[in-house]
């Protein structure tokens, strides 16, 4: 359920503080940002869009940490494989 797509805020609407324009791979749409803390929304922020509303801000530091963890799991495994291939117990 609940399709949510990341988009970048490219414009905050003057005179309508609950609206922002987001960009998803070059596709733009106005979304309602009334569910976010308005003082913390800036152009360049990434938000998760669901049925025309920004449901939450995407935390870039957390995103980077998750990726680092995933890549780390991958690399460590590759290292283990290499070690296994290189080990010679005969």
């Amino acid at each position: 359920m609940c399709l949510g797509i990341p988009g970048e805020i490219v414009d905050l609407h003057a005179g309508r503080d609950d609206l922002a324009t987001v960009d998803v791979a070059g596709v733009r749409r106005a979304v309602n940002i009334g569910l976010l803390d308005k003082d913390e929304v800036r152009v360049g922020d990434w938000v998760l869009i669901h049925v025309g509303f920004a449901l939450s801000k995407i935390d870039e530091a957390e995103a980077a940490a998750t990726l680092e963890m995933l890549n780390g799991l991958g690399e460590a495994y590759t290292d283990e494989l290499r070690a296994l291939a290189e080990s010679d117990i005969t």
Partner: peptide, 12 residues
Amino acid sequence: RPAVHGACELLG
């Protein structure tokens, strides 16, 4: 195209 991909993701 990237924009077609973006629109499709947005609309599911």
